[in-house]
Measured scan of single mutants.
Amino acid sequence: TTYKLILNGKTLKGETTTEAVDAETAERVFKEYAKKNGVDGEWTYDDATKTFTSTE
């Protein structure tokens, strides 16, 4: 399943996707990605669109 991440950081904005077996796995991948890029925001998830959003 393809999951999408929308980053709305103070210094980094953008989108990326990952293939994962479930939302929990995708969330771990995306949170590590955000951390590596210095984004520490509030997380939301929309199951209908398989989209995570992190907003600082």
Rank of each mutant, 00 (worst) to 15 (best):
N8D: 10
T2F: 09
T11G: 10
E56P: 06
D46A: 04
E27V: 06
A23H: 10
E15I: 13
E15S: 11
E42I: 14
T2E: 08
A26S: 01
K13S: 10
L5F: 08
E24N: 09
K13V: 11
E15L: 09
K10C: 14
G9R: 04
Y33A: 02
N37T: 08
A34F: 03
I6G: 01
K4T: 14
T17H: 09
G38Y: 04
Y33F: 11
E27W: 15
E15T: 13
G41D: 04
K13H: 11
E15W: 14
L12K: 09
D22T: 05
A48S: 12
G9A: 06
T49H: 05
T17Q: 09
E27I: 08
V21Y: 12
A48P: 06
E42P: 05
E32K: 07
K13F: 11
A26F: 01
A26K: 00
A26E: 00
K36F: 10
L12I: 13
L7F: 12
T16Y: 15
W43D: 00
T49M: 06
V39N: 04
T51V: 06
E56I: 07
F52P: 00
T1H: 13
K10E: 08
K35R: 13
N37S: 10
G41E: 04
T51W: 01
K50M: 07
N37I: 14
N8M: 12
T11S: 11
D40Q: 12
L5A: 03
A23G: 04
E19G: 04
F30Q: 00
Y3I: 02
A48Y: 10
E42W: 12
T55I: 09
V39I: 13
E56M: 07
N8H: 10
A34S: 06
K10R: 13
T55V: 09
T53M: 10
A48D: 11
K31E: 03
K35A: 12
A23Y: 15
K10D: 07
K10H: 13
N37L: 15
L5P: 02
T1F: 13
L7Y: 12
F52W: 06
A23Q: 12
D22M: 03
D22L: 04
A34M: 07
V39T: 04
E27G: 08
T44P: 00
K35P: 00
K4S: 05
T2N: 07
F30N: 00
E42Q: 12
